[in-house]
Amino acid sequence: MIEVRSLTHDYEGKGTRSVDGIGFTIADGTIFGFLGPSGAGKSTTQALMTGLLSIQAGDVAYDGVSLRAQGPAFYNRIGVSFEHPNVFGKLTGLENLRYHAGLYSVPTEDPRRILEAVGLTDAANRRAGAYSKGMKQRLVFARSLINRPTILFLDEPTSGLDPATAERIKEIIRQKRADGCTVFLTTHNMQTADELCDVVAFLNDGRIVAMDAPRELKLKYGERSIAVEHRTNGSVAKEILFPERNDDAERLKQLIDGGAIETIHSQEATLEQIFIRLTGRGLG
């Protein structure tokens, strides 16, 4: 279990906190989504949790042991995938994984097998500097799996990937959860979070504004809505109506009575809509 308590970080020490007293718990074998727009403090939190940044205030504990008390062996247990692909451009994809695997004192995966899993078999012997951004992203993701980690930190793992490849990566993440791995997923992609996460936390200006299972958040904060397409003056228009609101209920009745409706669908609120409702800002 991972426990984060009152975690705070101020890069410049001038009172502007990138992470402001956040706390949460992640159960073993779950995927915890950390969601928020750019600059919300997501990557900073991941850096603090992995020891990339020194903890200024608060604490992070793994199975009850503070990160401050963890030795080098701690890093045998975790895998980290970075938002910005950081690989040796002058080494091939295979060499990048092979050399990185040599740093661990635990059994590691076969680099070729992992490259195959992320769809890089054909590029295994090409220098990583010649990879596209998406390929580098997959190589970084593959590297995070090399030591068979029990805790995975993934920062925007599907960013810049085409839908088919992104789905492949998501499937690997689901498989890791099924194997008992705990995943800390940082993203601003609400759809990815909705599909993968058992629990999500919304981060805004360094603070957690909501945290629960995606379904619970939708039930708690989302309003059921109806998407209506109707033909008016010869052209098709689309409206989202919330029947629990008096104005929208009246408008819906008006459209039904007018016989202009072409399609009508009920829909639930998305995580993005809930985020906007809670913070007043989008995720761009």
Partner: peptide, 9 residues
């Protein structure tokens, strides 16, 4: 790459 090394043992 130094960041990747930092989160290795």
């Amino acid at each position: 790459t130094i960041r990747a090394y930092r989160v290795s043992p």
